[in-house]
């Protein structure tokens, strides 16, 4: 296996803070590689450096064997990019958008037609070819962007939050297309996300927080690190329940909202024991396998969605304005 993407000591400094604090990683050809972390962790800055949009402060990145700074245009020809925000020209038709892309990337005239049909078939948009993009739904625009990103047969496809802002059904569809892509074209996919379920589809996941990689492994291995099962309980006197569980079973208990959560080796057996031995009335129990969210919680002591959700809420509030 060859490394198609090679990153060493990559950092990005802005005036008053360091957005990316030194990243090393290698991505193998044909992998789906996920970049997971809360908003503001430095994911987008990293992906922008890898795709030659911004210059790293120190360190280097190589894509397809080309240096991201010295051989910018060769890197650009080897990658496809799908940004968080749409970069389609909505006043033009789907076909015009694709045709312009062919010209920007110097795709030979004789094969343009064939390529356009090919990528439109992957994303099921052949019959919308002559329509103005403005009339497309959010999901269709995303699909068209994915199609466009594939036109020049990139070796690596970068997807920055590919499904953000889409409804669950459309998200699922977009993923179908991405997986289809991997199978058909053998393309390497590098994506950022803060959706846990999306990260689980990846072959390997790098967890990023505060500009640093804090873990890098397969989703299974990461979850195994958390160890055992997750038990969540609610009880009448939570602080006291926490104290009892911590002292008598020697466990690390986290309190969140109105429930306690902790990890144990054999969840179902432990639960029976706990309910029998506990003096305080337990009002509900929940036993589950760890998710990547638990991995993040385990690594940082925070939940990944907490911050992003509260940020969105704040935005919504400020957008509504005073009433």
């Amino acid at each position: 296996m060859n490394a198609i993407l090679e990153v060493k000591g990559l950092t990005k400094n802005y005036k008053d803070f360091q957005a990316v604090k030194g990243i090393d990683l290698e991505v193998e050809e044909g992998e789906i590689f996920g970049f997971l972390g809360p908003n503001g962790a430095g994911k987008s800055t990293t992906i922008n450096m890898l795709s030659t949009i911004i210059k790293p402060s120190t360190g280097y990145a190589k894509v397809n064997g080309f240096d991201n700074v010295k051989e910018k245009n060769k890197v650009r020809a080897s990658i496809g990019l799908i940004f968080q925000e749409s970069t389609l020209d909505e006043k033009l038709t789907a076909n015009e958008n694709l045709m312009l892309h062919c010209k920007f990337y110097g795709i030979e005239k004789s094969i343009r037609e064939e390529r356009i049909v090919e990528v439109l078939e992957i994303v099921d948009l052949v019959d919308k070819r002559k329509n103005i993009v403005e009339t497309f739904s959010g999901g269709m625009k995303r699909r068209l962007e994915i199609a466009r990103g594939l036109l020049h047969y990139p070796r690596v496809l970068f997807l920055d939050e590919p499904t953000v802002g889409l409804d669950p059904q459309t998200r699922a569809h977009i993923w179908e297309y991405i997986l289809k892509l991997k199978e058909k074209a053998g393309i390497t996919i590098f994506l950022t996300t803060h959706y846990m379920d999306e990260a689980e589809i990846c072959d390997r996941v790098a967890v990023m927080d505060h500009g640093k990689l804090i873990a890098l492994n397969t989703p299974e291995a990461l979850k195994a690190k958390v160890g055992g099962d997750i038990i969540e309980i609610t009880a009448e006197d939570l602080p006291k329940a926490k104290e009892i569980i911590e002292s008598s079973y020697n466990l690390e208990v986290q309190k969140k909202d109105d429930k306690l959560s902790f990890q144990v080796e054999k969840g179902s057996e432990f639960l029976v024991q706990l309910v029998r031995e506990m003096d305080i009335a337990i009002t509900s129990v929940n036993l589950r396998r760890p998710t990547l969210n638990d991995v993040f919680l385990h690594l940082t002591g925070r939940e990944i969605r907490e911050e992003s959700v509260s940020k969105k809420d704040m935005m919504r509030k400020s957008m509504r304005g005073p009433h």
């Binding site: 949009i53 650009r76 925000e85 749409s86 970069t87 389609l88």
Partner: peptide, 14 residues
């Protein structure tokens, strides 16, 4: 503003 400039600027043309 609408993002299309990125499509242009990340392409290999000068």
């Amino acid at each position: 503003e609408f993002g299309y400039m990125r499509e242009i600027l990340v392409s290999p043309m000068s």
